[in-house]
Design a protein around this nucleic acid. Structure first.
Length: 187
DNA sequence: TACGCAATAT
DNA sequence: CATATTGCGT
């Protein structure tokens, strides 16, 4: 036997807003109904990224819009509230290459806002009547994703340092690297 | 084969 | 909790 497979790493890819943005961009680029994980990976051209990871993330995105870990940090309260609405698709069609909700419009107009939505409600807890996005039984809301433009940088959890800074002019804070090791081992 | 998704594992 | 991995159906 030979020893190989040194490149076998079990990296827990950290889906940051940046990476996620690129991910979405690729989706739009490919087009609706054509976002195959393989293609996505190809267009993303991110070394280290495997089809599985994309597929896994894609799954979550499809189900719900997926909230970035950073955002998730902000609102984490309340519970319950569920709606029992179901829609059945009577299509034995395979939902291939479907995108998560909304899906950007066709590449017709790029939202280029010289402004950035700045919200600084980061003072503490307390108020937080954030408008929750409820899913009406039938219509879905369309939300425009913030058009972010930044380079790509693959973040490897393996001894990766925040060396790469989002060297850009107007870029919001860099990605925090608060690695919280949450090891919850139940007995 | 590859994708989609549920369940499951870490 | 988030992501990876596995398994099954299509």
């Amino acid at each position: 036997m030979k020893k190989n497979k040194v490149i076998k790493q079990k990296n827990c890819l950290k889906w940051t807003a940046n990476l996620h943005a690129k991910f979405m961009k690729s989706l739009e680029q490919l087009g609706e109904g054509r976002c195959y994980p393989k293609e996505i990976v190809a267009v993303m051209d991110v070394p280290g990224l495997t089809r599985m990871q994309v597929a896994s993330h894609l799954q979550k995105c499809r189900f719900n819009n997926w909230r970035s870990p950073e955002e998730r940090k902000s609102n984490w309260r309340l519970s319950g509230q569920e709606s029992s609405s179901e829609s059945q698709q009577k299509s034995s069609n395979r939902k291939y290459g479907t995108m998560p909700r909304f899906q950007n419009n066709i590449p017709n107009q790029i939202q280029k806002g010289p402004e950035f939505p700045f919200s600084t409600p980061n003072t503490s807890i307390g108020e937080s009547s954030t408008q929750e996005k409820l899913y009406p039984p039938q219509c879905q809301e369309i939300q425009t994703t913030s058009t972010m433009m930044s380079d790509v940088d693959s973040e490897n959890v393996t001894s990766n340092k925040p060396g790469i800074i989002t060297s850009n002019f107007q870029q919001h804070i860099a990605e925090q690297n608060v690695l919280s090791k949450q090891y919850n081992r139940d007995k």
